[in-house]
Design a protein around this nucleic acid. Structure first.
Lengths: 181, 181
DNA sequence: CCGCCTATTTATAAGAA
DNA sequence: TTTCTTATAAATAGGCG
């Protein structure tokens, strides 16, 4: 969304990368804020800049969202389960993965004929290849998004050990008055 | 960014709200993914839908980002501090808050003359009022974004108790081979 | 809830301050 | 690093299946 289209890949120039990070981080937080307001959703974000500087956003507060998450993971049977993020349909995912692999293979085959295409000076095929590469990249992104859904459950299991109980926070305002039943 | 502009406020119709949530959550995660790729940044997001269903995104993994965050918060003196998210310039924030309050007052004064404006049938003033209201809303959002930066430090303190040690995950594939040093 | 589609609104890449 | 501006690329509201 700028003067010109850019590929979604590591920005090489360190300076430009930093600028891009700043601008996009702002955009990301703004989106998160809008999501929380529009839908009454709770959001928590943590980001590390290229220089490893931490940034974050939370509504109504990162700690609140985290606590809720932990609690939910601890007792998923009480209220309702969450197949969507806790355990997305693995079967379906595998199927989709299979399709993706097929498409990737297809793409590789085309890449092998790269030289041939260049010799043919066949612009049409060349653009086709580019499109394919793009769609492949999109697929990668899509998969990553789906996979991240899986990872989270592990993450939560990870933190669910000793929930929001017995904290010895020394600066934050903790308003933990809930116990797991 | 759609057929028509919408105000950033709770979407009333539950059905529409859910749809909006789904679409925007996808968009948010996509943005997060792009940010991580473009800038080599690490990102972790946790979201609760209006129906309290959890969703998340993480690159290279929520657990990784979290661990790094905790570690950094635990020993901030070693590498470098982070005034940007840990403790934004309170002084500056207060100044900006003051300006905002002034603008709000200004806005309220204008609102008081609302009837008068209507009687005057002065469209120009009316649109001015609307603009002002909008900018006010934007300011609120902006402030919330800034304030959220402050909250995070407390959150990290909270989780920093017992990091990534002694997990008993039972479903996800945990690739935890890290110990705190 | 997911996909597709289109008219519009937003986000943002570049460049300069 | 934040701000501003402008030209463009992207996201998404509303509708339909």
């Amino acid at each position: 969304m700028g003067r010109r289209k850019i590929e979604i890949e590591m920005v090489k120039d360190p300076n430009t990368r930093q600028v891009t990070f700043s601008k996009r981080r702002t955009g990301l937080f703004k989106k998160a804020n809008e999501l929380s307001i529009l839908c009454g959703a709770e959001v928590a974000i943590v980001v590390f800049s290229p220089g490893s500087r931490p940034y974050s956003f939370g509504h109504p507060g990162v700690d609140v969202v985290a606590a809720k998450y932990l609690q939910q993971e601890t007792e998923p049977s009480d209220s309702q389960e969450n197949p969507s993020s806790g355990a997305p349909d693995i079967e379906k995912l595998n199927l989709e993965l299979g399709e993706v692999l097929a498409q990737i293979r297809e793409g590789e085959k085309q890449v092998e004929t790269h030289d041939e295409i260049m010799n043919q000076n066949d612009v049409t095929k060349l653009s086709n290849l580019k499109e394919l590469r793009d769609s492949y990249k999109e697929l990668q992104d899509w998969i990553k998004l789906r996979l991240s859904d899986i990872e989270i459950s592990g993450y939560m299991m990870l933190l669910a050990q000793d929930p929001v109980v017995g904290i010895k926070a020394k600066s934050a305002k903790r308003k933990r008055r809930r116990r797991r039943n």
